[in-house]
Design a protein around this nucleic acid. Structure first.
Lengths: 205, 205
DNA sequence: CGCGACGTTGATTTGCCTCAACGATTGTGG
DNA sequence: CCACAATCGTTGAGGCAAATCAACGTCGCG
């Protein structure tokens, strides 16, 4: 495969994704090919750093990224993981063009397809169908975010952990416990004790 | 004013709201007039009940609604308040056409403008600009939801409460403490103690 | 090899909950 | 218009979930 073929192969998962929400015309497919750029990030590399205006909308082709905030004490709070076929971005910073207080970095070597703010506006203007597609896409994100918030205000840590195991089954064995704890909003020590309890009750049943 | 004039007067805040995101053409304004219906809910009345498919997208003109879940123990967990110029809906149920496990009811006598699922599809088809408008609208909701989640996994109750006071300043004196506690995910008793502490420290400074 | 990230375990502390009781206010039916 | 119930906010005593701090073994990696 030459470089061009590699590029095309990488973009396919995104085309599939869009087609699933709403089938694209050949012209729209061409626009996706020309406006989304593949990029590789190495493990631990920043995709976006706080202080900057977030300028790229990222679609993960392979690997895993995280979106997180670092508080005054230096503790990390993870808002989102994104593995294959997920979107990740600081949406507030991206749209309001204001400096972000969130970071995005790579938990594994990760390939993304990214579109800049400028090119996304081009896409919306020249292919209005993408307004509809991105509306649906964000609606889906909104619904899952709302579910997570509901869990957070209503359920104890143990229940949140089990729920996480179900929702992120495909991802669980790729993530260190510390990252999961930070996502759940509990300490790694306490998560360890929860897991221990689970192991014991499983042994008995 | 005759009935027709009342109807028109009630719809104006919504037209203003849309124009602020993206100016509407006269034809688009007409569509809004014909597809959104005003409706009054009395205090404590249900706007939407769990078990039903959520079929109305609601825009609050005056008053205040809440979106909440009732857990196995009968405890209420509030996902959202909506007062003037806010939207409220179970978006998951509305789009997937599945039975909801959330409720919406009125904390005050409330006037809403509502559009049915069916008519929203008509609106999207006949005036595609609304895809863009609703995309922006949901993006805004997404960003504020993400901020709230971040607070929830990173901040102690006291900080969440202060943050609530800032964000919902206009609404705070209209809401009973029990509702605020339920929104924050703490008990009314503990909220009372937090407020007490605040009063004392204010007295000293 | 040696260092740093990771997971575990123990002892202790604390933020927040539970349960119970009490006035103050609201509202509702007789 | 009053009486009674229901809702609301507050306070106290006690308990539990989860955090903190510290120590230790393991593993992967430079």
């Amino acid at each position: 495969m030459d470089k061009e073929q590699i590029r095309l192969a990488q973009i396919e998962p995104l085309i599939d994704y869009f087609n699933q929400i709403m089938p694209l015309s050949p012209e729209e497919v061409d626009m996706v090919y020309s406006l989304f750029k593949p990029r590789l990030y190495r493990k631990r590399q920043y995709v976006h750093q706080e202080g900057d205006v977030c300028n790229q909308f990222n679609f993960v082709v392979s690997g895993c990224l995280r979106l997180y905030m670092v508080d005054d004490k230096g503790d990390v709070h993870i808002l989102q993981f994104a593995s294959e076929n997920w979107w990740i971005i600081d949406l507030g910073s991206f749209h309001e063009r204001t400096p972000s207080n969130l970071n995005i970095d790579a938990l594994e070597d990760t390939t993304v397809l990214q579109i800049s703010h400028e090119n996304l506006l081009v896409l919306y203007t020249q292919a209005p169908k993408f307004n509809r597609i991105f509306r649906v896409l964000i609606e889906n994100s909104f619904v899952s975010l709302q579910k997570r918030l509901l869990q957070n205000i209503s359920a104890p840590a143990e229940e949140k952990y089990y729920s996480f195991l179900e929702t992120y089954e495909h991802l669980v064995n790729r993530l260190p416990q510390t990252q999961i704890a930070s996502f759940l909003g509990i300490t790694p020590e306490f998560l360890s004790r929860l897991r221990n309890k689970q192991a014991h009750s499983k042994g008995k049943s």
